[in-house]
Simulated assay, not measured.
Amino acid sequence: MAKLDYDYIIIGAGASGLLLADALGKDSFFSQKSILLLDKDAKKNNDRTWCFWEKGKGEFDTILYKVWNQILFKGQEFSKSYTIEPYAYKMVRGIDFYEHYLERLKGYPNIRFEQDAVTEVKDSEECVSVHTQENEYRCQKVFDSRFNYEMIEAEGSYPVLQQHFVGWIVKTPKPVFEVDQTTYMDFSVPQKGNTRFMYVLPFKEDEALVEYTLFSKELLPKTDYEEAIHDYLQNKLHCDTYEILEREQGSIPMTCYDFGQRNSERIIHIGTAGGWAKPSTGYTFMGSSKKIPLLISNLKSDNNMHDLGQKKRFWFYDLLLLDVLYNNNEKGHQIFTSLFKKRKPQLIFKFLDEETSFREELQFISGCPNLPFIKAIFKRLF
Results as ranks from 00 to 15, higher is better:
Met198Trp: 01
Trp276His: 02
Gln76Tyr: 10
Val179Trp: 00
Asp39Cys: 08
Asn298Met: 08
Ser188Cys: 14
Asn370Cys: 03
Leu362Ser: 01
Arg359His: 01
Phe351Asp: 05
Arg313Glu: 12
Arg93Ser: 04
Glu136Met: 15
Ser16Cys: 07
Tyr137Ser: 14
Lys312His: 08
Tyr108Pro: 15
Glu54Ala: 11
Phe340Met: 13
Val92Gly: 02
Gly271Leu: 05
Glu120Thr: 13
Thr183Glu: 10
Leu299Glu: 11
Phe30His: 10
Val118Asn: 06
Asn235Pro: 12
Tyr317Trp: 02
Lys171Cys: 06
Cys51Phe: 07
Val166Gly: 01
Gly58Trp: 00
Phe316Trp: 03
Trp50Arg: 01
Ala376Gln: 03
Arg138Ala: 03
Asp302Thr: 13
Phe358Glu: 06
Pro253Ala: 12
Lys106His: 10
Gln70Asp: 13
Ser129Cys: 07
Arg146Ile: 10
Ala21Gln: 04
Gln261Ala: 15
Phe378Glu: 04
Leu214Ser: 08
Phe203Met: 11
Asp144Glu: 10
Leu105Asp: 07
Asn46Pro: 08
Lys74Glu: 11
Leu209Glu: 03
Val160Arg: 11
Gly287Met: 04
Trp168Lys: 01
Phe52His: 08
Asp39Thr: 10
Ser338Cys: 11
Thr49Gly: 09
Asp318Arg: 02
Leu214Lys: 05
Glu207Gln: 15
Ile71Gln: 06
Ser216Arg: 09
Phe29Pro: 04
Leu37Asn: 12
Ile374Cys: 00
Ala208Trp: 01
Arg138Glu: 04
Ser28Pro: 11
Leu37Ser: 12
Trp50Pro: 03
Pro221Tyr: 00
Lys236Phe: 07
Pro369Cys: 09
Gly17Ser: 09
Gln234Asn: 15
Glu246Pro: 04
Thr183His: 05
Lys342Ser: 15
Asp61Asn: 03
Val170Arg: 05
Glu125Trp: 01
Ser34Ile: 02
Pro345Asp: 09
Ile169Val: 10
His333Tyr: 13
Tyr149Glu: 12
Gly17Gln: 04
Phe259Gln: 05
Gln70Phe: 05
Ile152Asn: 10
Phe382Cys: 13
Gln334Ile: 14
Cys368Trp: 00
Ser264Arg: 03
Ile71Val: 14
Lys344Gly: 08
Tyr137Met: 14
Leu381His: 00
Tyr257Lys: 06
Phe314Gln: 02
His306Asp: 12
Asp180Glu: 14
Lys80Pro: 03
